[in-house]
């Protein structure tokens, strides 16, 4: 099946979970990455249970610091 991952269409195995997708995409420190599926957030505990469907759109939102030194 095909899903969209951070804007790019990808073929993934049927029945893939968010947890599996995070591993497959080699997302670093996935526990600190916010995940949304079809514009809804999926909390950490629900990720292994959430099975993706054909056509789903998944976004990974990363913590990003930067800017000035510590105030």
């Amino acid at each position: 099946m095909f899903i969209t991952v951070t804007g790019e269409k990808k073929e993934v195995k049927d029945g893939i979970t968010i947890g599996e997708l995070l591993a497959q995409e080699k997302v670093q420190t996935p526990e600190y990455v916010t995940v949304s599926v079809n514009d809804e957030f999926v909390e950490g505990e629900g990720r292994d249970a959430t099975v993706l469907k054909d056509g789903d759109s998944v976004e990974f939102l990363y913590f990003m610091g930067g800017g000035a030194a510590w105030l």
């Binding site: 913590f63 610091g65 930067g66 800017g67 000035a68 030194a69 510590w70 105030l71």
Partner: peptide
Amino acid sequence: IDGTDNFAAK
């Protein structure tokens, strides 16, 4: 404007 570099400040 948040122009800080760390999460505590953010």
